[in-house]
Design a protein around this nucleic acid. Structure first.
Lengths: 134, 134
DNA sequence: CAGGATCCGTTTCGATACTG
DNA sequence: CAGTATCGAAACGGATCCTG
């Protein structure tokens, strides 16, 4: 009785859902990409209140999927620093699409000027996200 | 002991995740948007093999979130026809972003010529998706 | 103290049988 | 055909415990 592979579909959307198709992974990516958060503790402090075990499992999964990397903090050995890989940074257009859609249809607090920049200026994100290693 | 509403964050990504942030909703939207599927039965026939109860619950949720509509089939009273609303159709850029990302990093079967059209031709989708009511 | 593992009650998922 | 009921499996969420 194997795990039933069934999920193997060639649809690219499926491939993406396998990597971050749950409610927490995308929020972690957002924290890394837009909010400059980089450590376990900082992720825990996000408004949404992720549980410690869930956070650990998502970080592991994101790493296994090549979306983030991790390395020890040179200034504080017990701390680890998480960062987006190139593959992870390339998720930016998806995040932007999400934000643009949500801002059109849901009540959110994002100012429309910022939204326009996100849509119109392809370099805005690249500049906003400080350069990640790898 | 209330349910702890906690989830109320003003982050637009959260708003989007509330509407379709699970592994099935996006696939249903894909079926409606790109594959011309419109009935319960047709959704069930997708490769991924959604269970009937999950499909029903996701359709209900998508409707509650204003992403799809439903009406009886005029030609067959017991059948119902699902369609994307404007709000649902506006999710297209997100789907496209997902496809573009996945095709770059995951093995998928989507031909690159099609990908280029998806990226470069904003009207490609509008034409491909037959016009939905509402 | 930071990162993360373990335990455990609760919620959600998913496969199948069943109903209108 | 289009769902609902049932019930076991998996995931979640929170508290707590372990490790460096």
């Amino acid at each position: 009785m194997k795990k039933k592979p069934a999920r193997r579909s060639s649809c690219p959307i499926n491939a993406a859902l396998e990597s971050f198709g749950d409610r927490w992974s995308l929020l972690i990516i957002r924290d890394l990409m837009f909010r400059g958060r980089r450590t376990y503790k900082e992720f825990l402090e996000s408004d949404e209140g992720i549980a410690t075990n869930i956070l650990a499992s998502r970080l592991k999964s994101l790493k296994a999927n090549g979306i983030i990397t991790t390395r020890p903090d040179p200034e504080d050995g017990r701390r680890r620093i998480y960062a987006l890989t190139k593959k992870g940074l390339d998720l930016a257009p998806i995040l932007v699409s999400l934000v643009v859609w949500a801002s059109r249809y849901e009540r959110t607090s994002m100012p429309s000027a910022l939204l326009r920049r996100l849509q119109d200026d392809p370099n805005f994100l690249a500049n906003a996200a400080e350069r990640q290693p790898n």
